[in-house]
Design a protein around this nucleic acid. Structure first.
Length: 323
DNA sequence: TAGCAGGAAAATC
DNA sequence: GATTTTCCTGCT
């Protein structure tokens, strides 16, 4: 099914796809191919129009507009977060990047896999899990797989999950899948709570055991920001932590700074994390999550700039000799 | 609260 | 080819 979506507020498909929120999209020429809502979807941007093609009628223009949050006033959000140079510059440079409304279960499972990994690796793990456990369907002569239902991963032997390259993440993924499959997590209710209540809900213990093994404050913040409508959530990964240390030293408390000076490593304790993310919410306001995502992009870009020959991913894939 | 392990792949040297 | 780093969390 083919359709178009008219854009009447700023949007960059490119920057949104490359912002590190999503793990099931890949570029093929001018098109981005993905699997969302159990359907294949391909999208290309032509100025202020999104040209789309989906394998299922359930994914139409309404779905796409909701997925990319096109109903929200990005100009207003950018004006709200551009309170200083670093964020204002990043917002200008990556103008049009939007946060995406992801399926909460898929987001949770994906970020449980994201610990100690980089984006290519995360994509590989997610693809492996989908290919092994997700429902298969055809699109344009290719066999694709939906993101697995929680029941499917809850039922999978840990040894099988390990063979998908997940390593120590395998038992975490199974545990999280079980909690969701057995109804111990109500994402609709989480979305209705305040930010802090919602975070506590995801991090809580149940009968003396963790509700969600492998989910700490960072992963919880990702789920809250990308799937539960908590725009003030401010996930702090290593890149954002570095950006904060460089550009916002005042947000880091003195204990962390002295440890940083001592061994040079930016490892946040749980207490550090809560304090710094609270300070960031105070600084950037109700759309702090957008500020975080723009800072993340800028921080990664400055690293990529250190290796000019690898600056273009298109060139990279076209010119890399086979291993 | 601190310190460490965890698994594998990418990035870097 | 070896080493370091990687969108972190759990356990002691």
């Amino acid at each position: 099914m083919e359709f178009t979506v008219a854009l009447d507020s700023p949007f960059s498909l490119e920057y949104t796809m490359e912002s590190g929120q999503l793990f099931r999209w890949s570029r093929k020429g001018e098109w981005w191919h993905g699997v969302v809502g159990g359907s294949a979807l391909k999208v290309r941007q032509e100025g202020d129009v999104l040209r789309c093609s989906a394998s299922s009628d359930s994914v139409g223009s309404g779905f796409v507009a909701r997925y990319f949050r096109l109903d929200e006033d990005l100009e207003h959000i950018l004006a709200s977060i551009s309170r200083d140079q670093p964020v204002a510059r990043a917002a200008q440079k990556y103008y049009g990047m939007r946060l995406v409304r992801q399926d909460a279960w898929e987001c949770l499972a994906s970020f449980v896999l994201a610990t100690n990994a980089n984006i290519p690796r995360i994509k590989k793990m997610v693809a492996e899990v989908c290919d092994s456990c997700g429902a298969a369907f055809e699109f344009e002569g290719e066999t694709l797989h939906a993101f697995p239902r929680p029941e499917a991963l809850a039922a999978a032997p840990v040894a099988d999950l390990r063979r998908m390259g997940l390593g120590y993440r395998a038992p975490f993924l199974k545990h999280v899948a079980s909690s969701v499959a057995e109804g111990r997590v109500d994402f609709t209710r989480v979305a209705s709570l305040s930010y802090e209540e919602a975070r506590d809900e995801l991090l809580k213990d149940l009968f003396g055991e963790k509700l969600l093994l492998g989910v700490g404050p960072k992963v919880a913040d990702c789920v809250l920001l990308f799937s539960c409508g908590k725009d003030e959530a401010f996930p702090i990964d290593v890149w954002v932590a570095r950006a904060l240390a460089r550009s916002y030293p005042k947000l880091l408390d003195s204990a962390l700074k002295s440890r940083l000076a001592r061994d040079g490593k930016l490892r946040l304790s749980r207490g550090d994390y809560f304090r710094i993310s609270k300070a960031a919410r105070g600084r950037f306001g109700r759309y702090a999550g957008y500020a975080q995502q723009y800072l993340f992009m800028a921080a990664r870009e400055s690293e990529a700039g250190a290796t000019p020959s690898l600056s273009s991913s298109a060139e990279l894939s076209a010119s890399r000799p086979s291993p």
